[in-house]
């Protein structure tokens, strides 16, 4: 049972790290602000949940689990609010999102 828990938590932590790395690379690779926001969204939702789940599986202490769950819930509640405020401020300041049609893209090449 203990071994199973350790393996499950290891898998959660590894997949979470991979998703976090993907989000960081997306933050650098994507072309404009609004698409970068989606890349940051990956690291805020599933990656955070997986890393914290991996930590929950490692520790049997009830108070520690409660605090980890609280961090998870706070992150899941806060991150959409923050990105909504950011996106709304950006669009109101006149930052145009890059909307490209697939055809234009092929013609420009």
């Amino acid at each position: 049972m203990d071994l199973f828990m350790n393996i499950a938590s290891g898998i959660c932590l590894l997949v979470g790290s991979f998703l976090i790395l993907t989000g960081g690379i997306g933050l650098l690779r994507f072309p404009d602000f609004y698409t970068r926001m989606h890349a940051a969204g990956i690291t805020d939702t599933l990656a955070t949940s997986l890393v914290l789940t991996g930590l929950i599986l490692q520790n049997p202490d009830a108070l520690v689990i409660l605090k980890l769950v609280m961090i998870l819930l706070l992150t899941l509640l806060i991150s959409p609010t923050a990105s909504h405020a950011l996106a709304k401020a950006a669009i109101r300041s006149g930052l145009e999102p890059m909307v490209k049609e697939q055809k234009d893209n092929q013609e420009s090449k």
Binding site: A40, T48, L52, L55, S79, L86, A90
Partner: peptide, 23 residues
């Protein structure tokens, strides 16, 4: 390039700091 890119990056830095402290 824009102010909002910087704020987004700083926000992401902060959320990663939370995970880093827990780990």
């Amino acid at each position: 390039p824009s102010l909002y890119d910087r704020i987004l990056a700083v926000n992401m830095f902060g959320t990663k700091t939370v995970l880093m402290i827990a780990l």
